[in-house]
Nucleic acid binder design. Structure first.
Lengths: 222, 222
DNA sequence: TTCACTCATCATGTATGCAAGATGGTATTC
DNA sequence: GAATACCATCTTGCATACATGATGAGTGAA
């Protein structure tokens, strides 16, 4: 129903973002508006607008009269985003635990607090659901502005977080940790929930860093 | 030096934002791209781009083929922004207190930790400096992404925060409170600094709410 | 061989033209 | 008199044309 209102700009914006997520456009790649316009079967105007949004979102940069570039990997920036993400989610948990009721948590419970046999095992799907878990946690606390900032951070981290969830142990751990966090929130144990969540994110971050460094090391050797 | 690179779009973006801050464009006001283009002596293209940025920043909204509107006051949103701002600044203080050194704090000390006779008294100037205080606090902790989010929030709250700082007692209080916060940070008393800062912001928020409600009440009576 | 300069080419930034749809006023009907 | 339908006008969304400055290949001199 909302799709009717999708403009050409929106379509191109989504498509480009997806290409970046899918590594069809690699970090550091350079391209022109004309190229994108041809590929997307549109004129430069909506392409420019879409690129402008993506720039504001932190995915691409424009070089004055010299083309566009997919933002190169910047590990310091990723660390900052992880840190900010942790702050936001800790704040969200604090708010959640202070609330009397939080019906918004129900869908989370229904997905994550399930017996082992009902759990998913497909890596990419679990990554998607992991993202949803953290986003919904922030959304549930009722501060839409917080949720918006958090969503942007989540998207910007998606590129490297996909490296996680490639191995079964991490998937299993994710289920276990999410379960623990939810139960702590339900029991209104703020500090415990915060501690668990911080550990959960840091662990995932460490995993990603490890693999990323490995990839970098390999790349340098070639 | 950086001004050379200011495009027409940038100029219009800044000008429009300033007009919104100055209430030359009032919340709820509707206008067209053509109007702005004429006023700014430019074509619709850069106007559109500037408006698009302002929309993303949360200052205006576009109505499909029906003109633009300065975002009307939304007090619930302001509360959310205040809350988010507090979270960010508390996190910044935590980081600052954990750091060994923080030379970035020096300019803050030089401005706020001064004898009474050296203090400014001009309301608008102090408001500007108050904004700078909080922004620099976040910048000093070294997370640029955090600082960026915080800056956007600060700008969006500027419209209502200008109501504050109209009375001498609030200016005096601001000096006193900022001084206390800085001293607590210098002594690495994290919790005390956080408590002071939260109280400081909540007080300012309460003041703004009081005056705003008063204004609304008056507006309804006319 | 290497460095510097020139100029054609190309990419973005800006202006303008055109189309689809929203709006508001007027006329018509009940 | 009220409500509805229709039409002129207006506004944004998209396409295209033009201007300005960046880039890099090629040439000439040291």
């Amino acid at each position: 129903m909302t799709s009717k209102r999708q403009s050409v700009t929106d379509r191109i914006y989504d498509a480009l973002k997806q290409e970046i997520f899918d590594f069809a456009l690699l970090p550091g790649d350079r391209f022109t508006e004309q190229e994108v316009a041809q590929r997307m079967q549109a004129s430069r105007t909506p392409v420019r607008e879409a690129l402008s949004r993506l720039q504001r979102d932190g995915f691409v940069t424009v070089m004055f009269r010299a083309g566009w570039q997919v933002k190169p990997f910047d590990f310091e920036k990723f660390d900052q985003l992880y840190e900010l993400r942790i702050f936001l989610e800790l704040a969200a948990i604090k708010k959640l635990c202070e609330q009397q009721e939080s019906p918004a948590l129900d869908s989370l419970k229904n997905f994550w607090l399930v017996p082992v046999k009902d759990r998913l095992s497909h890596g990419p799907t679990v990554r998607e659901q992991d993202e949803a878990f953290h986003c919904q946690l922030v959304e549930a606390c009722g501060n839409e502005e917080m949720a918006k900032v958090h969503r942007n951070i989540t998207e910007r981290l998606r590129i490297i977080r996909r490296i996680d969830f490639t191995q079964a142990p991490r998937i299993e751990a994710t289920y276990k940790e999410h379960g623990k966090i939810l139960r702590a929130i339900i029991k209104r144990r703020t500090l415990e929930a915060q501690r668990l969540l911080q550990a959960h994110i840091l662990e995932s971050q460490a995993e990603v860093q490890k693999i990323t460094l490995h990839m970098l090391h390999q790349a340098r050797q070639t």
